[in-house]
């Protein structure tokens, strides 16, 4: 049923390599997952709610115990201490302090990343402008709307210079204009060499990604280049490709 669309060339080391990974938490949440994420791409992890996206993401950032198989990030086992500077992670719930201001939050996380003085001030200004929150920098996070809070959380991940950004549904509930701007920002990050892995349950967002991982009921339906996936399934939109893979998987296995 799984359709591997392309194999990475031998000499290119993937940023994320998952091989025959299974997660069992009372039931099987992820079953025999294998894929690779190449450097400098925007990879979309698409699937309906409950398909295992968050568990897969937590496995990649090393927060999920009981994952069998191989999960490697930058050639190291996921969750290795030396990866903490290299991997930026944004969970689905805004993980910031609600009782201090946006700027105080960013200053704190920047300090934890080892920044201080002018570089820290610069990083804070840069990420505030990245997520369009400069005007609200002095506002206590608890008084912001849900969308604004998740942007603060997103901004924290941009503070350092991670080589891999792992974002769990960062665009849920956002204004379409802002959503477009954020996807443009992810694209810019990727062009500057940061690999971006974004999850979403909105299939339309797949069309903004270079590569796709399609997940359904804990199984990976497809992994690879978006254009190739569309060509292989004879569709023009990721949503149709997803349906085709679910409904007629066997017709695609040959070739």
């Amino acid at each position: 049923m799984f359709v591997p669309l392309d194999a990475l060339s031998e000499n290119q080391q993937p940023v994320v390599r998952v091989d025959q990974m299974t997660v069992v938490r009372r039931r099987v949440v992820l079953r025999n997952i294998s894929f690779a994420v190449p450097m400098g791409s925007v990879t979309g992890l698409l699937g309906p709610s409950g398909s295992g996206k968050t568990t897969l993401i937590r496995t990649i950032v090393g927060l999920q115990a009981r994952a069998s198989g191989t999960v490697e990030v930058l050639g190291l086992p996921a969750g290795s201490a030396s990866l903490r500077r290299e991997v930026g992670y944004v969970s689905q719930a805004p993980s910031v302090y609600p009782d201090v201001t946006v700027r105080e939050n960013l200053r704190y996380f920047a300090s934890v990343l080892g920044l201080r003085g002018e570089p820290r001030a610069q990083a804070v200004r840069r990420v505030l402008s990245d997520v369009d929150l400069t005007a609200l920098a002095g506002t206590v996070v608890g008084r912001l709307s849900g969308g604004e809070r998740s942007r603060v959380s997103l901004a924290v991940a941009f503070l350092g210079t991670p080589r891999l950004l792992v974002l769990d549904e960062p665009t849920v509930g956002l204004d379409p204009v802002l959503r477009r701007d954020l996807w443009a920002l992810f694209g810019r990050q990727a062009r500057h060499g940061t690999t971006v892995l974004v999850s979403s349950h909105v299939m339309d967002e797949a069309d903004r990604c270079d590569r796709l991982l399609l997940l359904r009921e804990g199984r990976l339906l497809a992994a690879g280049d978006r254009g190739e996936l569309l060509a292989r399934t004879g569709t023009v939109r990721a949503e149709d490709a997803f349906l085709r893979l679910v409904e007629a998987p066997h017709s695609l296995e040959a070739g």
């Binding site: 927060l63 903490r84 500077r85 992670y89 969970s91 910031v96 934890v112």
Partner: peptide
């Protein structure tokens, strides 16, 4: 509960 603990544990701290 905030998720800030998870976040901090993912940072070099």
């Amino acid at each position: 509960v905030n998720g800030t603990l998870d976040r901090l544990l993912c940072l070099p701290m």
